[in-house]
Design a protein around this nucleic acid. Sequence first.
DNA 1: GCAAAACATGAACCATGAATCATGTTTCAT
DNA 2: ATGAAACATGATTCATGGTTCATGTTTTGC
Lengths: 196, 196
Amino acid sequence: MPKGDLPKTRRGRARREQILRAAEEVFGEAGFAAASISEITRRAETAQGTLYIYFKSKEEIFRELVVEMGHLTRTVVTRALDPGATRLEAERAGLAAFLHFVAERPALYRIVEEARFVDPAAYRDYFTTFAKAYEARLKKAQADGEVRPGDAEVRAWALMGMAKALGERYALWGDPAEIDGVVDEAFALVREGLAP
Amino acid sequence: MPKGDLPKTRRGRARREQILRAAEEVFGEAGFAAASISEITRRAETAQGTLYIYFKSKEEIFRELVVEMGHLTRTVVTRALDPGATRLEAERAGLAAFLHFVAERPALYRIVEEARFVDPAAYRDYFTTFAKAYEARLKKAQADGEVRPGDAEVRAWALMGMAKALGERYALWGDPAEIDGVVDEAFALVREGLAP
DNA sequence: GCAAAACATGAACCATGAATCATGTTTCAT
DNA sequence: ATGAAACATGATTCATGGTTCATGTTTTGC
């Protein structure tokens, strides 16, 4: 029984995966507190005890999901940055990719945000890591003269916050069809600022 | 026993207030799930049953705090906008006031954010109301030619998101002394944008 | 001063649901 | 083929803590 490790057999790996996917669903829909182990195992079509072969607690499954989801978000956003367009245009694409991703997998947003309360360390880790990468990109763009000089760390957090709020308002609560328009407006703000 | 109403006697009003302040502390420190009624009443120096004279459930105390805190934040930020300075400068002052407020009463931030999970309706209400006010200010500024034309709603949510993220990173996790510098940097971004 | 309403108490009740464990079944290396 | 390790089961256990309630005490209006 590998507690922190991965399962040894094909069957084991499949079970663990089933449980994780069911947990993602249930945590996403009900939130951590209201999510019950019995509901998770019901959807995973296993016995309750089975879950404890692969995870040592309810918190541990949750943490695993946060890590997984963080990795996924970073992948989605980073992949969108590729094109050889302007640095700022690339950032625009990253924001668009993020918002569409939130709209497609709303459980992601909820789980990561709830981590602030369920597992503060994982939450902080996730955003700090993300911010560092963002900061590095901004610094590089600055060095290349593609953006005005300024504190890259503050900018990274400000822009991340923007993305989170827009994701909540438009991708989660609003009409997904609006997203592209929102991205245009938001990036106009980031590019030119508010001053006339 | 006034269930939704306010207490009739001076003593009653004082008790209710003691309980609310204790609840603010405990919810802020421990989060909703880990906060126990017994700990709240211990700090309020009353019996557990007393709490149920004034609130019909744990959720109801929490909701009351969200409403109260929302009102307080709006007051603090709005008060900071008074001066007859430039509209943009006034906004800068609002951001500064918000960040200092978060640093002073971190429980506020936590409770309001946790409301997303404990009481989604109250959470959404709170931010939608706030956004509407922000939007109106931006529209007015736009009409007066003090900011470039653009979608005021998107801008309001983007700027709110910025404030939340900066609050989390610098007012909650960072050194409060940094706040004024952060405000300057962030508002430079908002004013002039990233483009060189 | 006195009834009635409001307020206060804290031990006991009770639902909930996470975690365990004794008992099987399946997989895999040799 | 076979034994050992890995995996699977689900009813039972157990701690937790929100809520209730029977019994006082205090305040208020008249």
